[in-house]
């Protein structure tokens, strides 16, 4: 089973359309909805959360990212430009030595990756990083 870039781009059709302008609100709303579900509408602070991602991803199929928010209970990751913005949520138990997790994600195109941490006191902090996803020269 292989995922080719062409198929990854098909996945990214939504993202391309969004770039073109018109239905951007629809996708943005989905991202906003996900955030609202996670936070229950609470205000989003800044700071105390670090998202590490490449500035330029060589291939959107496998983008290594790492997120850390000391003292967090949970961290949600979103990819705002994917047709489905959900990426995953990490919940940290009492035996997590740090509130850090690294994984590899799919990005359908250049976009913001968003991380929101729910802190132990019930507050939320957010950070985002733009990842540029390159279009290959060959077989792309």
């Amino acid at each position: 089973m292989t995922h080719t870039r062409r198929e990854a781009l098909l996945v990214g059709l939504g993202a391309l359309v969004a770039t073109a302008g018109i239905p951007r609100l629809a996708f943005a709303a989905t991202t906003e909805e996900r955030i609202a579900e996670f936070t229950g509408g609470a205000a989003l602070g800044e700071g105390g959360i670090t998202l590490t991602a490449p500035e330029i991803a060589e291939n959107g199929n496998t983008v290594p990212i790492s997120v850390e928010a000391p003292g967090a209970v949970a961290i949600m990751l979103l990819a705002a430009g994917n047709p489905n913005p959900d990426v995953g949520t990490f919940r940290f138990g009492p035996l997590a030595a740090s509130q850090m997790a690294s994984t590899r994600i799919r990005l359908a195109g250049t976009q913001d990756v968003i991380a929101i941490a729910q802190m132990a006191d019930g507050s939320f902090v957010k950070t985002a990083r733009e990842v540029k996803v390159t279009i290959g020269g060959c077989g792309g």
Partner: peptide
């Protein structure tokens, strides 16, 4: 990463020529 799979030399040659 493009295929998320192991690719042989000949497979890559074929891709290049294609």
């Amino acid at each position: 990463l493009n295929n998320a799979a192991l690719i042989s030399v000949h497979n890559r040659f074929r891709g290049c020529i294609r």
